[in-house]
Design a protein around this nucleic acid. Structure first.
Lengths: 328, 328
DNA sequence: TCTTTTATTGGGAACGTTTGCAGAACTAAT
DNA sequence: ATTAGTTCTGCAAACGTTCCCAATAAAAGA
């Protein structure tokens, strides 16, 4: 692969001159410029960005770590963040951990070696080692989806506690008295802990107990089986708040099969406003989360951090919107 | 940021020795090794991959270009390809064109400058300039979703013609006589041209004409409005083949509104086996496409090309599965 | 003790750029 | 024709690695 040096040889000039032509700097004679350009196309020279990056000590690279690309939240998030980063001339190095938690650590390290200028991390669980890795990173790390601000990690989060509280209020307003929650296993603070906590406190505020708190994974199937189990264990349920729309869609199926009608005898709420929610039957009442904005904000916040070492914003909390459909 | 040189100064040895310790090569005295390791952690040295890449003339980087991350096909594809590439020690540079066609050219160029070892391109439309750019690339380019094999571009495709033919056969087997097609605008050979062509020829094979060929975009909404229009223009439709499940879901809604029952008076088929298809009502009969396998195969094919310059495989055609549900 | 072998270390070029500085070539003015 | 000023070009160092080769140090054999 041709280098500056080769072009210089062909054109019969020095590397410096070729470099000047490429970056069209002032002060190179027109005749030589043409000579060089001819040489460039002759040998099909393509500038080597690796060498440039080394010389300039700047990569224009941003690392993005997700656990899975094909989830509503991350896919939309990536679209959001790439649109912002692209405008800033940054390129995205993408790593998927494929749900293997410790890969997050690996990639933070690898990205540091690759001299990315910053990292956007879609985390599901913030444990001590991860926090440590983030704090030891030489470049800024922005957390998306989980709150790391107590560890001084800038974060983009959705208002998970409040969505839980609002869900409780909506269910109560619909007359529900026996309300349960279906969340997820693992230590997902945002999806399981905060949403259930908000719900519980809205119920308590109205002197109602939380009937149950079961857990599945993020699949429709697990929503179905978990809901089925709950329906068998409690015969007076009149409201279920599901931590995600996919879980809710599964629950809907279980309820339909039980002979009840979601939205009538039993109210259902999901979270996320997944496209599924408008398509399932009955259509799912839920909360719209701005996953694309989460990505955009993560990118913007990161760019801020890269530019000035100043740290004005430490956390961005995104609001949500009530989506009223048939199930509540 | 500390470099080998800094470590060497602190440890009181030469750069060469430090390098040897880092890559734990044979032939360095234990005492000095310890000395160096202490120096490394003292100054928080992190190896510079950019310099390594330059020196070794190897980046272990693969470029991936998509038009949008948040589409069923690309999101699953990316998950598939990252899982393969990761095992091969390659890292992914991701670019989204956000549906701007000419950005594909830009990124092919940028990726070449960045010295990626290969490129995976999710294209929607293969025109002359794009083919040219691909052929002028210094590194192998694998096309996903569209067939570029006639231009000697290795491609991963789904069997779009055959899915159309099969759709026609299924509709005819269900007794349909007045069948139409809803595709997409633009010059999408895979999604619009081939699928409609297969359908048309299956109908012709049974002496039936194609009642209509309308076009929308990839949204549910456009499936709805296009289908509504068709229902108004033709009053005897008894079968519609939709180029994607999202379009089909929109069409379903239009048919439901019209008072007919999809699956009874009018049969509907989609393509892709999107999760929506199992959730909508009535559930959508469709064809399952292996989007994840497409990504995996693209990665494998690319790795082949990177390793040996040989070119055994030029095209991989992925099959599909009939998914029978309520609408056909 | 002196040589020979072996183990350990350092020097320096190279990867492909950019860039400050100095030298060369030209132009214009004396 | 000399000088002074411009304009243009080349040399060489630097970015952070790796790695060949030579040099030194240690150990072993004579």
């Amino acid at each position: 692969m041709a280098s500056l040096h080769d072009v210089a040889l062909i054109a019969g000039v020095s590397k410096s001159t070729v470099s000047r032509v490429i970056n069209d700097e002032y002060g190179v004679k027109n005749a030589t410029k043409i000579k060089v350009q001819k040489a460039i196309s002759e040998c099909g020279y393509v500038p080597n960005q690796v060498a440039k990056d080394l010389k300039s000590q700047k990569t224009n690279l941003v690392g993005v770590i997700v656990s899975r690309v094909s989830s509503h939240a991350t896919a939309l998030g990536i679209d959001g963040l790439t649109s912002i980063l692209e405008k800033a001339g940054k390129h995205v190095l993408l790593a998927s951990t494929h749900q293997e938690h410790q890969k997050e650590l690996e990639y933070i390290q690898i990205f540091n070696q690759k001299r990315v200028e910053g990292i956007i991390l879609y985390a599901t669980h913030l444990d001590k080692v991860l926090v440590n890795a983030i704090q030891n990173s030489n470049v800024p790390v922005i957390l998306v989806g989980q709150d790391g601000s107590m560890h001084n990690i800038p974060s983009i989060v959705h208002d998970d506690y409040r969505v839980g509280f609002e869900a409780g209020s909506r269910l109560i307003a619909q007359g529900c008295k026996s309300v349960g929650f279906i969340g997820v296993q693992g230590d997902d603070v945002a999806v399981d802990k905060l949403r259930s906590q908000g719900l519980t406190e809205a119920l308590e505020f109205n002197q109602l107990p939380l009937l149950f708190h079961s857990r599945g994974d993020f699949s429709i199937e697990s929503g179905y089986s978990t809901a089925k189990e709950c329906l068998a264990n409690f015969n007076n349920i009149d409201g279920i708040f599901c931590a995600t729309d996919r879980i809710a869609v599964g629950a809907l199926r279980a309820i339909n099969e039980s002979g009840m009608t979601p939205g009538k005898e039993i109210k259902i709420l999901g979270v996320g406003n997944d496209e599924l929610a408008s398509v399932c039957s009955p259509t799912l009442s839920t909360f719209s989360y701005a996953f694309d904005k989460a990505g955009e904000n993560a990118a913007k916040l990161l760019l801020e951090r890269i530019k000035n070492q100043g740290h004005e914003m430490s956390k961005v909390v995104l609001t949500f919107q009530n989506i009223e459909r048939e199930t509540c």
